[in-house]
């Protein structure tokens, strides 16, 4: 197992390198650039633009720019944002906990709701409960996140005035747990409602599959109660694909749900990226993509390892 993990990690290095090269190439191929921010400023001269381009190293050949970015990046210097001039690492670390806070809650809520529903719909397949719940989760699964978010804002924020429209906390007040929770409700609901359907479907499908397996028949034949059969035997096996999917979703915890953060004004990673992308803030974009890609690679590895751990039939050499 250890050798397997090590080999996978080793393989990740050229993968990441490739990703940074491709990202950088795309960035550089995009017409326009960071200097666009200065248009409209009547006091800026072409000379100013050239001076700034030079100061930011934008007048160098592309491959030199990439190599200097890469060498700096490898030594822990992720560069400075073109627009705020702050260190990229500082910017990312400032947003990181806030995204984890939102997405972590989403993750926990989603799983807490989805697991019991998934089990129940499978155990009571084709009951009215199954139909209603499967139908509902299916409907949410088919709803664009941004539309759901907007509808929730209209109903609960604007019409009923029950919940705040956005942000992490009421500004100008001291820390207040209830206030924090109130701010979490709408964004978490938006993302969870869409996410729950997904997990329910996975769990239901794999539960149904395991419930008909021979060893469960044996267990039942031995006179074990259905409840115990489900809890002890079926669930364990049925959770394998669920764990895999959950692990694959982990990067989202960090990368954030861009659209949702955008709609609810959540100061997380997604908004950082959106702002950087629209400003052609190359160092921030590169830092972000490198982090995101690393996380995805690690999550894939974690999923495979979990899978092997939970399913004794799988062995990695």
């Amino acid at each position: 197992m250890t050798t397997y993990v090590l080999r996978r990690l080793l393989q990740a290095v050229p993968l990441l390198l490739g990703i940074t090269v491709v990202s950088f190439a795309i960035l550089k191929a995009i017409p326009g650039g960071p200097m666009a921010a200065y248009e409209g400023n009547p006091n800026i001269t072409d000379e100013d633009i050239r001076r700034l381009e030079h100061a930011l190293g934008l007048d160098q050949p592309v491959h030199i720019q990439y190599l200097s970015w890469l060498t700096a990046f490898l030594t822990g210097d992720w560069g400075y944002s073109y627009s705020s001039h702050r260190a990229v690492l500082t910017e990312i670390m400032e947003r990181f906990p806030k995204t984890v806070y939102l997405m972590g809650t989403v993750y926990v809520v989603t799983l807490l709701v989805a697991i019991p529903i998934g089990i129940l719909t499978a155990v009571r397949q084709y009951s009215w409960f199954d139909h209603i719940v499967t139908g509902t989760t299916f409907a949410f699964l088919s709803t664009p996140t941004f539309w759901l978010g907007l509808l929730l804002i209209i109903v609960f924020g604007l019409q009923l005035r029950l919940l705040p429209l956005g942000g992490m906390a009421t500004l100008g007040t001291d820390f207040d747990l209830l206030d924090r929770v109130r701010h979490l409700i709408l964004p978490v609901a938006t993302l969870s409602l869409v996410g729950i359907g997904r997990y329910v479907r996975f769990l239901r499908a794999s539960m149904l599959e395991t419930l008909t397996q021979d060893y469960l028949r044996t267990a039942r034949a031995k006179g074990l109660g259905e409840r115990i059969v489900v809890a002890r035997h079926a669930l364990k096996n049925a959770s394998i694909p669920l764990v895999t999917v959950a692990a694959l979703d982990l990067p989202e915890l960090f990368v954030g749900a861009l659209v949702t953060e955008q709609i609810f004004g959540w100061p997380g990673m997604g908004r950082l990226y959106w702002d950087a992308a629209t400003r052609s803030d190359y160092p921030v974009i590169m830092g972000f993509l490198a982090v995101a890609a690393s996380l995805i690679i690690l999550a894939n590895l974690a999923a495979d390892v979990f899978y092997a751990y939970l399913d004794p039939r799988i062995r990695y050499a």
């Binding site: 993968l15 990703i19 491709v22 990202s23 995009i30 017409p31 990226y273 959106w274 992308a277 629209t278």
Partner: peptide
């Protein structure tokens, strides 16, 4: 399969945004 791995390691929406900007 390495190419597939690489493509899958890109955060998709984030890449799409870049393309969106790229293609005006």
């Amino acid at each position: 399969m390495r190419v597939v791995d690489m493509m899958l390691s890109f955060p998709r929406l984030f890449l799409l945004i870049l393309f969106g900007v790229f293609f005006k």
